[in-house]
Amino acid sequence: MLSVFESFNIREEASYHLLTGNCASNKEMDNNQIKKQLQDTIVREIATANVNELVNRLTENCFELCFTNPSSSMGSKDKKCIEQCMQKYMKSWNILSQSYVKRIQEAKAAGDI
């Protein structure tokens, strides 16, 4: 799931390779292109796995909180709850992410890891 900007960057770099390709030998160009392709695939696959994980955990948590008594249809209240829950969950993710990374860095500085 690439954003518009990311896919633009990839296109731009691809054309950059074409323009500079004249100076490099064919073999070298192949190498760089394949390398780029492999790295792009790695980044894309990991990003997809990350989004999947977030969507699964978001769904589970917000379903739990917003549908304590599931009714026969989705109302505007339910939609609002899901929306607010998503926001809250992602804010929680950001808080924990910052603290966790900070703690890893502190532990590294103290020589614990």
Binding site: I46, A49, N50, E53, L54, R57, E60, N61, C62, E64, L65, C66, C81, E83, Q84, C85, Q87, K88, Y89, K91, S92, W93, I95, L96, S97, Y100, V101, I104
Partner: peptide
């Protein structure tokens, strides 16, 4: 990097369950 992110997913899941009991706003 991905391992760190996956840990954060686990911690968020766990701590969100413990700490957020009600949804009445989009802010914590």
């Amino acid at each position: 990097k991905s391992k760190v992110q996956m840990s954060i997913h686990q911690y968020t899941d766990m701590c969100f369950k413990k700490c957020v009991k009600k949804i009445d706003s989009s802010d914590l």
